[in-house]
Amino acid sequence: MIPLSHSLAIAALLFVLGLAVVLLRRELLFILIGLEVMLNGVALTATAAGQYWGNADGQVLVIMLMTVTAAEVAVALILVWLAFDHYRAARVEALTQLREETERRTS
């Protein structure tokens, strides 16, 4: 039988890979995909734990996760699209209007 720790390790790997995608890729779409991967890791963790403990709470958590993710992704994607529309780019480097302006500071 699969020990829980193995599932957890795989889930953690997924989480970490998603994290790496978020951190490494500079395209907003990739970043959103990376977030999905991270959440998949979470989902795997919850499912495996649900199996381990033998109750349905884990699955409820995953379902909630999916729902919420759907909502989030919808809004986020619209925003990415808007960004692409406005800035003609969907890369994070293009989205740096808001920043600390230490060099140009006067006084």
């Binding site: 699969i2 599932s7 795989i10 989902a43 795997l44 499912t47 199996q51 884990g58 699955q59």
Partner: peptide, 13 residues
């Protein structure tokens, strides 16, 4: 992952 879920006894998921 869906396969994994299935294997972990969560067919609905």
């Amino acid at each position: 992952l869906a396969l994994l879920f299935f294997l972990l006894g969560a067919p609905l998921l």
